[in-house]
Design a protein around this nucleic acid. Sequence first.
DNA 1: GCCGCATTGTATGCAAGGCAAACATTATTT
DNA 2: AAATAATGTTTGCCTTGCATACAATGCGGC
Lengths: 154, 154
Amino acid sequence: MLRSFPAKSAPSSDDGDIGGIDQIVGFHIRLAYGAVYRHFSETFSDLGLTQKQVSVLWLIDDHPGIAQADIGRRLQMDRATVMAIINRLQKRGFVVRGPSPDDRRRQTLKLTEAGHDGLIAARACILEHEQWLKNRFTPGETGMLIELLRRIHE
Amino acid sequence: MLRSFPAKSAPSSDDGDIGGIDQIVGFHIRLAYGAVYRHFSETFSDLGLTQKQVSVLWLIDDHPGIAQADIGRRLQMDRATVMAIINRLQKRGFVVRGPSPDDRRRQTLKLTEAGHDGLIAARACILEHEQWLKNRFTPGETGMLIELLRRIHE
DNA sequence: GCCGCATTGTATGCAAGGCAAACATTATTT
DNA sequence: AAATAATGTTTGCCTTGCATACAATGCGGC
């Protein structure tokens, strides 16, 4: 039972739950992420879309003609990772690549009709998914949570 | 460079960088998780340990003789996933499997000397990692964040 | 204008995680 | 005794993340 951590007001110095590890913020972020990920997967099992894929579809819809590199920057993903995601989305006929008028290195990305329909369906699922999440919080707490999380990733 | 984005038909009112997607709690959790994951990987590149692996080492240290199924329940992982992680840790000589005295289906897990040393080193890194994280928050905010996250994964 | 450097897309390969499905063994319940 | 549950195990597939390398293009300093 070594607890070499800032066990301030240490709950569960006994074997109740998890050891000192539950004083670690990163630990809770990981668990929360896992829970969200799992529920997301269930909610989207019909559509067969992942969080990342929906995020990318959403982003392309909001910014038609966006380039892969921009997506990587906004969603904090490696270029190679973006590549893989776009490839999958393209293979499913959700996005199309096209040339960029002013920079021949770039590819402009746009949603196809199917991609747009997929996003519409996805948004409905996201509403449900978000509801599941937000049920735990008051509106004020939700705002606070977003604000705190934003400080981590910005 | 797409510095100024077209920001075309924004469905939501206050989109600064990202479209309406940044009203989504799950989106921020994912980004925050990614940021934490990345910093963790950097911090632990010397040790060559991942978040999961450290969590598991920590848990075994806190609960010697714990079984894989228990780890799965506590850390919310699939049995097969726990299996893979334990296999890696065992291959590196950090944990040993043994028989359980009262249930022959179970395997008791214990840290080896090397595993314990690894955990000691890992804890130092975690302190640094947590500091990086907590620097963004007041103690009160940190407590609040943990409390909110706990509601998600509990 | 030219050269070096940065940017972008692309391909390849590898590690880690998540999960489903199957199977054998052992406990527990009925 | 039989059905059911729990546990460990293997196998296989998918997604993500990242490193590396390469070619084409754009840009800034000279």
